[in-house]
Design a protein around this nucleic acid. Structure first.
Lengths: 244, 244
DNA sequence: CGTTCTCTTGAGATCCCTCAACACCTGTGG
DNA sequence: CCACAGGTGTTGAGGGATCTCAAGAGAACG
């Protein structure tokens, strides 16, 4: 199977279900799926536009085409936790439990492909292998979510930020070779809500990593990794920086 | 379909896949599955015994029959995060990604049913509906895990403990009517690792809830809920107790 | 060149952690 | 029966990490 020519089809997610929704679906064995392909649509979201809100009926599964989407949950008093960022190639809403369990907001101008859940259901019923592929995607998502629980519950602010930067760097690298300059498409507040910190603490720890000459800030949305090894050590808790 | 006569078959999990593994599988339409049933086995674990360790090859999916199992991840320096507790009826290891992504330790004497992953694979392939059911279970698990992220990242210690107690109470209640006395099968340290706190903070917050006359402690492993409404309010962050 | 939004930095308060002591319980062995 | 040890839970004192509140710097935009 030929990899899809999408921006960052580096995740298992899109590759796993690509035969059913990729541009080359018609050439794949799944002819029936190809016809269903026509039932998907594309949506463009402006910055801060919502794809859906927590509690909405779960009508579509979405695949991010370009841009980044924040998936978040709220407490009644407004405290927010971003449970995940969905990047190009990522699938949103595999957890089909009737209604959405989080809200989805575009960080910038974003395009998504929308697949009605009944199409998903039909594919699972009719296409051997599709359900299995979906289960594999859900498994990877569960594993990642649990990794994040370890981060949220047991890491210091500096460790959290270091882990976050490495996570983004690795994502960018999964398309190619190691890089030093990382584009960060989210603002400080969004990073804070992702890591369970405040804006100020995120900012202070960017500064801390900068002062320690581990990273260099290029504007506020790009980070140059000066000392990758040390950054890894900090993320792993093997570096005393967290005690300063 | 008749519900299974298991200790707490209250979760969606067991009900969802019960037709394939329940004691009455032979009477279900899934005759092929019934034959596979013979390939499962049962294991008994003593207190603190491990079902498997993070990194082990993912050879079996387990269903808890009796007892409680802690699923946890470690940082290199020993900090621990319990990602989930598996109660009777819960399925462990749906996320089949080759190797285990967390360790599983019995809190007390525990029995589990072990299903080889190739049996799961075969069922998915041969039994229409089984993959769908499994996906549903995974979806519920993902939703719960994200709820926990909100708790870990954004709740205060008191809120976390109140949520925890309510979670256990609701689990016990899903079998029947509202209860006031809740059995807590885990020790303070295990609760702490579940909530991302220290033992002392957990203990102090038990005391805080007790002094506020919201709960009463019966020994250290049983809690009587004196003021359910207030406990709910505290868990939701609508009660000033967290600021005392 | 204001306006607005975002990011950074400082000062002080607060929550939670660390370290330490002690109470309680249980099982063991004298 | 009692002494003791080990495991567990509670409580206190102090410290440190993070939050809150506030001010100012920087960037984006009309």
């Amino acid at each position: 199977m030929r990899p899809l020519p999408l921006p960052s089809a580096h995740t298992d997610a899109l590759h796993a279900i690509a035969p059913w929704f990729g541009d080359n679906a018609a050439t794949e064995p799944a002819r029936h799926a190809a016809r269903l392909h026509g039932r998907t649509s594309e949506r463009t979201l402006d910055t801060h536009a919502h794809l859906f809100l927590e509690g909405d009926r779960h009508a579509h599964v979405h695949i991010v085409v370009s841009g980044v989407v924040a998936l978040y949950k709220l407490l009644s008093d407004g405290r927010r936790q971003v449970v995940s960022f969905a990047w190009p190639g990522d699938i949103i809403g595999l957890d089909c439990t009737g209604s959405e369990v989080y809200s989805a907001e575009a960080l910038g101008r974003t395009r998504v492909r929308c697949i009605p859940v009944d199409v998903i259901d039909r594919l699972i019923r009719d296409e051997p292998g599709f359900g299995r592929a979906l289960l594999g995607v859900a498994a990877v998502e569960l594993a990642e979510t649990r990794e994040r629980m370890l981060c949220l519950g047991r890491q210091s602010a500096t460790e959290k930020l270091a882990s976050f930067l490495l996570r983004i760097a690795r994502r960018a690298e999964s398309c190619g070779r190691e890089i030093t300059n990382v584009q960060i498409p989210m603002k400080r507040g969004e990073i804070a809500d992702f890591l369970g910190l405040t804006i100020e603490t995120v900012s202070r720890n960017f500064t801390r990593l900068r002062v320690a000459r581990v990273i260099r800030l290029v504007g506020s949305c790009e980070v140059e990794i000066l000392d990758r090894e040390r950054l890894e050590a900090i993320a792993a808790g093997d570096d005393g920086i967290r005690r300063y």
